[in-house]
Design a protein around this nucleic acid. Structure first.
Length: 893
DNA sequence: TGCCAGCGGGG
DNA sequence: GTGTACGCTGGCA
């Protein structure tokens, strides 16, 4: 029987029984029981093995002591070490036994590998992959799905996924006092909305209401307890594989669990009789329901490094990703809607329904799970745990390889070990990458070519065989010579790959090979397959790129600062070598370089000629770099302003599908900030555009002057001057004088019925007057009504000026010239005439401005611009593709 | 520039 | 559950 692994846990009766919750090919649920596996770990005995064994034999929990030969992973070892493998009966005894025996042994390995993972690794099982199971039907009431007592479990080849059932929910509560934080011990849940995929009983959604109410797809109850009981029942009958909902991990679940407790209702939301559990993960909690997956779109989106949004509330996210909005209900009015007319209650019900729908749509339509399915299959981590973070993924993947190679894995660092590492880090330092001091200012004479190393750190690890297990500890001349040691720029040595290929280089190689293979398959795949393969390809890249970070992460089991330092050291060395090669061979200057990229200044104004040179440089340098290192020509900037390291902007051109695509690229220069009014962003963007595209600095100055004049005359609309800040605590608890808090106090006095409360965002403008600044914050609508004047000096000096000044000073314009009255700017020898017009004719003038391209979800056709009708010619929906990854969004305006 | 405090999403 | 835990932004020195 073929089963796809969804989740695993174990129970203990008189021996441990592993329970694999999975799906069969036709989507049926099954739980596979396996009782032939026992917990074990390794110890390094003291010099006197006999004595160590005698001591260990006294520990009754240890059932078996077996001598084994295993390789230690930190530093290169020619031979395996003699270790002892200790087998126990009960996994939960391991922590205590580990403590107990610490004094009898020199070292302990793998004593904190969770039992289910120990089992998976030893049987070569991976999360979300398929297994071939033989066994007999098992009668049990401990799980809610049919059970199978397995006699054999083997990994199976099948790819693809079983059909999954998804359920999204959202709760609404009745706050007794909306100005106070909501209290889950008193304030009841009054509405639960649910959305299903596939449909449940021909229904896409159901809303549960804890008071009498009639409506379509609504079930009403007389009290909270009955409603909650029905919710539990619905989970069991619908039996979802994935439970989702927006921010459920830090709101809905903790709240629900407390309400279930208060009502003395059961907590077994999973597929067995265990209660739902949670663990604190930094700020938010994460919930676990055995046998099901709990996925929170909020957390997925927030942790995705490719998706950078200014806000992550459901409304913003839905608008941006689904082009849909929440129904509008203010938090403060919920109480009234609940106690109001039938129509008001209906509005509340529809509001709740929409929220559940939106969460489900996000997860399904934006395919938020797809990447995690793949990461699970690649790393071996169970789907529920793969949301957690890179460390677990990397370590689990390594564990599989370690076991194959007869290596043992160190335990995770203790508190003391962490301290030691942090101290060592302070002493030795973890030197980062090279960032060259840039040639600051405006560059317009010719194209700036940008050359990038293709996945620099993975390539370095492969090229120099950098790995914890290849680091040479015995640095005697003889030893280094025998192992053909490769010296790193920080003085570490690594074994030559002909003697031993390191675990990391090997894993990186595997990942890269698989990725190349996947990309090849993509070329001849149909649209649907292509999309899936693209996600696989990206997940592989993700894994390869997380290796470097892992070696330098203090909590890593395989943390070795010399390894991390060698990687960046080689990176610096090769970047400097690249700079030298380029400058010496081509007579051009590298005006800036950061980590893995070099910015080359040329005098070429023609895009095609520039590209030709870029390609030539890339080929020349790549040929002269060692191993797997490869430099590629990525893009060019026709005009370029660099303020400091990591802060630059340029008129970017990329050659995509035989066509030049242009946009204004900004790095590290903010045009949007929460505490800036819209005017600032607008002027910043305009100024940068004028300077880069027209080369007309005077025009940019005039633009600013014009804005300043309008500000003084009060001609700028208030909307553009409104600054928004949130109230984060009770307004009586603020000590200092903050403009938005002072305004909130004023507003509370003016309208005592609806005072601003915690969580509200207050929009304000600064008005003229003699009082201190914070007292002059005013509500824009109040300003309009009473014809008050805004304070132009504040906006000039505190808002518009500081960011603009940095740009202008970089292009050689003094502060005074922006204020000055008609005095001509001195432009660092840049005649405005000469730079006003570039010698390039641009075909499509409309810049994409951060948006790279659009890819059809259906047929995978790509567009450089959003077609007028907003969808693909084939009718398919368009995804934004950024840096080559599908569905990744860019900075929001 | 660097450090510390506080917030995020939800209702 | 063989667990123990974030990461950014803004305000201030």
């Amino acid at each position: 029987m073929l089963v796809q692994i969804l989740d695993i846990d174990y129970i203990f009766t008189n021996k441990p029984i592993l329970r694999i919750f999975g799906k069969t090919e036709d989507g049926k649920n099954i739980c596979v029981f396996y009782d032939r596996f026992f917990p074990y770990f390794y110890v390094k005995p003291k010099q006197n093995i006999k004595e160590t064994e005698e001591n260990l034999q006294k520990v009754t929990e240890i059932k078996e002591i077996e001598p084994v030969e295993k390789f230690l992973p930190l530093g290169f070892h020619r031979k395996p070490d003699k270790l002892l493998r200790l087998t126990l009966l009960n996994p939960s005894d391991v922590p205590a036994v580990r403590e107990m025996i610490a004094k009898y042994v020199d070292d302990i390995y793998e004593a904190d590998i969770m039992f289910k993972y120990r089992f998976m690794i030893d049987h070569e099982l991976y999360g979300m992959k398929w297994i071939d199971v033989e066994g007999t039907h098992e009668r049990t009431t401990t799980v809610k799905v049919p059970a199978l007592h397995a006699t054999s479990i083997k990994p199976a080849e099948r790819i693809g996924n079983a059909p999954f059932r998804y359920m999204a929910f959202d709760i609404e509560c009745l706050p007794s006092d909306p100005t106070m934080p909501i209290d889950n011990r008193k304030d009841q849940i009054i509405i639960i909305s649910i959305a299903f995929h596939p449909e449940f009983d021909n229904k896409k959604t159901i809303v549960l209401v804890a008071k009498p109410f009639k409506g379509d797809n609504v079930q009403s109850f007389v009290n909270e307890k009955d409603m909650l009981a029905e919710f539990l029942r619905l989970i069991d009958i619908y039996d979802p594989d994935v439970i989702t909902g927006y921010n459920i991990n830090s709101f809905d679940f903790p709240y629900l669990v407390e309400r279930l407790r208060q009502n003395k209702l059961p907590l077994n939301l999973g597929r067995c009789d265990k209660p739902i559990t949670s663990k604190k993960f930094g700020i938010s909690e994460e919930f676990y329901a055995t046998g099901r997956i709990i996925a929170d779109p909020y957390q997925i989106l927030k942790r995705d490094p490719w998706i950078r949004l200014s806000r992550y509330d459901l409304n913003t996210v839905s608008k941006l990703m689904l082009n849909e909005e929440k129904h509008h209900v203010e938090y403060g009015e919920m109480k009234n809607l609940w106690n109001g007319t039938k129509d008001e209650l209906k509005r509340f019900v529809d509001y709740a329904r929409k929220d559940a729908e939106l969460s489900l749509k996000l997860l399904l339509e934006k395919q938020l799970m797809a990447k995690f399915f793949e990461l699970s299959k690649i790393s071996g981590v169970l789907l529920q745990d793969v949301f957690g973070g890179q460390t677990k993924r990397v370590e689990t993947m390594f564990m599989h390889e370690f076991t194959k190679r007869d290596f043992v894995m160190p335990c995770a660092p203790s508190g003391a070990e962490l301290n030691k590492r942090n101290n060592e880090r302070e002493k030795k330092g973890l030197k980062g990458a090279t960032v060259l001091e840039p040639e600051k200012g405006l560059h317009t004479e010719g194209c700036i070519l940008v050359l990038d190393f293709k996945s620099l750190y993975p390539s370095l690890m492969r090229t120099y065989n950098i790995s914890p297990d290849t680091l040479i500890l015995d640095k005697s001349e003889k030893n280094i010579a025998e192992l053909k040691g490769i010296k790193s720029p920080v003085g570490s040595y690594f074994v030559d790959p002909s003697i031993a290929e390191g675990i990391i280089p090997y894993q990186v190689k595997k990942l890269i090979e698989k990725r190349t293979e996947t990309k090849k398959l993509m070329k001849k795949a149909d649209a649907e397959e292509k999309k899936a393969l693209n996600i696989t390809q990206l997940a592989l890249k993700d894994m390869a790129n997380s290796m470097y970070g892992y070696t330098g992460y203090v909590r890593a089991r395989l943390y070795m600062i010399d390894v991390a330092n060698s990687i960046t050291g080689f990176g610096r060395e090769n970047l400097m070598k690249t700079k030298k090669l380029i400058e010496e061979e081509f007579g051009v200057k590298v005006i800036y370089a950061d980590t893995d990229s070099a910015f080359v200044k040329t005098k070429i104004k023609d895009l095609d000629q520039a590209k030709e040179l870029g390609d030539k440089i890339a080929a020349y340098v790549s040929e002269r770099l060692p191993g797997f290192l490869e430099l590629a020509f990525e893009k060019l900037y026709r005009t370029f302003i660099i303020l400091t390291k990591k802060r630059y902007t340029g008129w970017k051109f990329e050659f995509v599908d035989n066509e030049w695509v242009d946009s204004i690229d900004m790095r590290g220069i903010e045009t949007v900030r929460r505490d800036w009014c819209a005017l600032v962003s607008e002027v910043m963007n305009e100024v940068i555009n004028i300077i880069l595209k027209e080369g007309d600095i005077q025009k940019a100055i005039d633009k600013v002057k014009d804005v300043l004049t309008k500000l003084r005359k009060g001609e700028i609309p208030l909307e553009k001057l409104t600054i928004i800040k949130g109230i984060t605590k009770n307004i009586d608890h603020y000590d200092g004088m903050l403009p938005h808090i002072e305004l909130a106090r004023k507003m509370a006095k003016r309208n005592p019925q609806e005072p601003p409360k915690i969580g509200d965002r207050i929009g304000f403008v600064i008005i003229k007057g003699s009082q201190m600044l914070s007292k002059r914050a005013e509500d824009p609508s109040y300003v309009k009504k009473h014809g008050l004047q805004i304070d132009p000096d504040y906006y000039i000096n505190n808002q518009v000026f500081p960011p603009l000044e940095r740009i202008f000073s970089a292009v050689g314009v003094e502060k005074g010239e922006l204020f000055g009255s008609g005095r001509q700017a001195s432009l660092l020898g840049l005649g405005t005439k000469a730079t006003r017009k570039h010698e390039i004719e641009i075909e499509h003038k409309k810049p994409l401005d951060n948006w790279e391209e659009f890819m059809c979800q259906k047929c995978n056709k790509t567009y450089r611009r959003m077609p007028l009708q907003g969808v693909c010619g084939c009718g398919g929906e368009l995804l934004i593709v950024c840096n080559g990854s599908v569905g990744k969004k860019v900075v929001m305006k």
